[in-house]
């Protein structure tokens, strides 16, 4: 079972991303769970969301405590939240940041696992024209762990987005995902 914890701020699409990757995995025949941690909800407040993906039915219904991957959608959270809490030994920390993985590693004094960074906000601005880093972060996540194949993720984007936002913006999202996959640095 792969367990992922997402850190973002209300309104940045962390919940959507946590569900999106789970739904893509469901389409690939996996068992899934995606749920946010509800607190006082307001735009800008730090939130956490969780995704589980497994080959067998998932019965556990408690929050993820020892994630394989931690995805930080808003890098300002690194200053206020212990994002690496419980990260497993060979886990991955993926941060939306223009900084090199080494810089993040030093900042957090993280010795274990892998650190990956990608400037998803910049990619989102350049592809979609708005700062919505959550979809590019899905591409970056695939780069550090093939939780689903790129083809499955892209067909999921088409399924979900085409009717809602049209072909142009759907393609822009797909471009963002592919660029983030390419531009992710791992260290």
């Amino acid at each position: 079972m792969i367990e992922i914890r997402w850190h973002g701020r209300g309104g940045q699409g962390a919940k959507t991303a946590s569900q999106f990757i789970a739904e893509a995995a469901l389409g690939a025949g996996k068992y899934i769970q995606a749920f946010p941690e509800y607190g006082p909800e307001r735009a800008g407040a730090p939130i956490r969301c969780f995704t589980r993906i497994a080959d067998k039915p998932i019965t556990v219904h408690s929050p993820v405590t020892n994630p394989y991957a931690v995805v930080v959608i808003d890098p300002t959270l690194l200053d206020s939240i212990d994002v690496i809490e419980g990260l497993i030994e060979d886990g991955v920390l993926l941060v939306n940041s223009a900084k090199a993985p080494k810089v993040i590693r030093e900042k957090l004094k993280l010795k274990k696992g892998k650190v990956a960074t990608v400037d998803a906000t910049k990619i989102s601005l350049e592809t979609l024209g708005i700062p919505m880093p959550n979809t590019p972060m899905l591409g970056a996540l695939l780069r550090v762990k093939d939780v689903v194949s790129m083809d499955i993720l892209i067909s999921q984007v088409k399924n979900k987005f085409l009717k809602k936002i049209g072909a142009e913006k759907t393609d822009a999202n797909i471009d963002g995902i592919k660029r983030a996959y390419q531009e992710t640095e791992i260290g």
């Binding site: 569900q19 789970a22 739904e23 469901l26 068992y31 899934i32 769970q33 995606a34 749920f35 946010p36 509800y38 998932i58 219904h61």
Partner: peptide
């Protein structure tokens, strides 16, 4: 059913 734990959790 359990509030949030299952009511707001996406599963297949």
């Amino acid at each position: 059913q359990d509030g949030f734990i299952t009511s707001h959790s996406v599963e297949g």
